[in-house]
Amino acid sequence: MIYTIIGLLIVAVSLFIISFFTQDKFKKLEHQIEQLSLSNLQDNYQIKKKIKILEEELLPSEINITDFNKQASNKSSLVKQVETLYRQGYSAAEISEKTNLSEYDIESVISQYSNME
């Protein structure tokens, strides 16, 4: 019985000593995961940086509200002119000639005007 215990102790100590000299597979795996994570973070940073640059180039830095107001007032004056001509009894073709708009646009304005009444 003593021989078995001594034999088991010798085997245990020898396996313990051998374990220090073997390569740790988990360390390699951990290192690979860290490298993958770092490269992923770098890629994300570069993509976000490129997107920001593209957004700055594509989007105007200052949006003029006055331009939108002018366009809206022009459209509203054309709509008013079309409605006035329609009330006076002009046809869509005649209104189209006077306002230089397509007949389709005239008809859509007239249909909207008719729905509002």
Rank of each mutant, 00 (worst) to 15 (best):
E117A: 13
T84P: 01
Q42E: 09
S19Y: 01
E97R: 12
F16E: 00
I18E: 00
F21W: 03
E83T: 06
K98T: 14
I33A: 08
E107V: 14
N74R: 09
L36G: 14
I63K: 00
I18C: 03
L101P: 01
F20W: 07
L8V: 07
Q32N: 10
G7K: 04
L29D: 11
K28N: 14
I33P: 00
V13L: 09
Q81R: 08
F26A: 10
I2F: 15
K80W: 02
F21H: 02
I65D: 03
Y86V: 08
I18Y: 09
I5A: 11
E57M: 03
L101S: 10
H31M: 09
L36E: 12
Q23P: 06
K27F: 06
K27S: 04
L41S: 07
G7C: 00
D67F: 13
Q32M: 14
Q23R: 13
Y45A: 15
N115Q: 13
A93S: 11
Y113D: 11
A72C: 03
K27G: 06
K80C: 01
Q81L: 09
L29V: 15
T22I: 15
E83C: 04
I5M: 07
S91G: 03
K25E: 06
S73E: 15
Y3H: 07
E117V: 13
H31R: 12
T22Q: 12
L85H: 07
F68I: 13
G89K: 00
S111Q: 09
Y3P: 06
I6S: 12
Y3W: 08
L59M: 08
D43L: 10
T99P: 02
P60A: 07
Q42I: 03
F26Q: 10
F21N: 05
Y45N: 08
M1Q: 01
I95G: 04
K48R: 05
I5G: 02
D43E: 06
Y113N: 09
S77C: 05
T99M: 02
K52I: 03
M116L: 12
I33M: 09
S73R: 14
A92K: 05
F68R: 13
S102H: 02
T84F: 12
Q35S: 10
L9A: 15
I17M: 03
A12P: 00
T84H: 11
S19A: 01
D67R: 09
L38Y: 11
S96A: 11
S96K: 02
E57G: 00
I6R: 12
Y90G: 04
Q32P: 11
I110L: 01
I17V: 08
E62C: 03
T22C: 06
T4L: 12
K28A: 12
T4D: 15
I10A: 11
N64D: 11
E34D: 13
F68C: 05
A72S: 12
M116F: 13
V13K: 02
I17R: 00
E103C: 02
